[in-house]
Amino acid sequence: MARRTTAPSRPGGQAPFWLISLLTLALALPLGWLVPSPALAAVDVAKQVLIGADYHGQDLRGGTFNLTNLRDADLSGSDLQGASLFGAKLQDADLSNTNLREATLDSAVFNGTDLTNAVLEDAFAFNTKFTDVIIDGADFTNVPLRGDALKALCAVAGGTNPVTGRRTRDTLGCS
């Protein structure tokens, strides 16, 4: 009887099991080394005194400014989407042209704060104090506010937000 010197052929020309296993393993390995990591982690300056700090035009998405004193700070043109400013003191701060979408502003103090053309869509600001603020062109879409804060904001509301195209009074639901 003659001996075979070649491997038996597989039905349908399938690859050997060990090759399929190797390819499956290679595809299952994490590819994290191919994806670049972010240059900077979200800023965390909770409970700091940052009077007069200059953060204008910066990417501060997801940053933490809880209980931070930001009096006279310049945050104009910054991206603060998803940032937490819980209990922050923002007296006379410049937040004009900022993206505050989905930010936590609860218990923050906005006294003399400039929010011109800021987008606060879906921010949480129920217990936020607004006194002598400038809100021309600010967008408050879906922002929960206490009745007294809403009344004070409607008294000074005007303009249309250049990013969203929404009138400030409409976003506040002013009558």
Results as ranks from 00 to 15, higher is better:
P162Q: 06
K47V: 11
I134P: 01
N111F: 06
Q48P: 15
N142V: 06
T68I: 09
G57D: 01
A155W: 05
G147C: 00
I135K: 04
A118T: 08
E121W: 07
G62L: 12
L60W: 02
G165Q: 07
S96C: 14
D148L: 13
N111W: 02
D72L: 15
L145G: 05
C154H: 00
A103K: 02
T113W: 06
T160G: 04
R101M: 11
L34M: 13
G147P: 03
V45I: 13
L50M: 15
G57I: 10
I51S: 13
F140Q: 05
L105V: 09
L80R: 04
A73V: 11
A88C: 08
S78G: 09
E121P: 07
V143E: 02
N161C: 08
S37M: 02
R166Y: 00
A155E: 05
S37E: 03
N99T: 12
T164L: 07
D106H: 05
T68W: 01
G112W: 06
Q91P: 15
K129C: 07
G63P: 06
S96E: 04
S37H: 02
T116R: 15
F86I: 01
T168Y: 03
Q81E: 06
L95D: 01
S76G: 12
L70H: 12
D72A: 14
A152I: 02
F140D: 05
R146F: 08
T64S: 08
R167W: 00
T160E: 04
C154Y: 00
C154R: 00
G147W: 01
D122F: 01
A155G: 01
L100W: 02
A39K: 11
A73S: 12
D92S: 13
A83I: 05
D132C: 14
A157M: 10
D72Q: 15
L50W: 15
L85W: 11
P38E: 02
V143P: 09
L31F: 11
Y55L: 14
A157G: 09
T164N: 00
Y55Q: 05
R101A: 07
A39P: 00
K151Q: 12
L100N: 01
K47P: 03
N111Y: 04
V35L: 11
L29S: 00
P30Y: 09
T113L: 14
L50E: 13
T104Q: 09
V49Y: 09
A93P: 10
V49W: 07
L85E: 05
L145C: 08
K129A: 14
I51C: 14
Q91A: 15
V109Q: 02
A149H: 06
A53H: 15
T141G: 10
S37G: 09
V156S: 07
F86D: 00
Q58I: 05
Q91V: 15
V156F: 02
F124A: 07
V133Q: 00
K89H: 11
L120E: 08
L29D: 00
T68S: 10
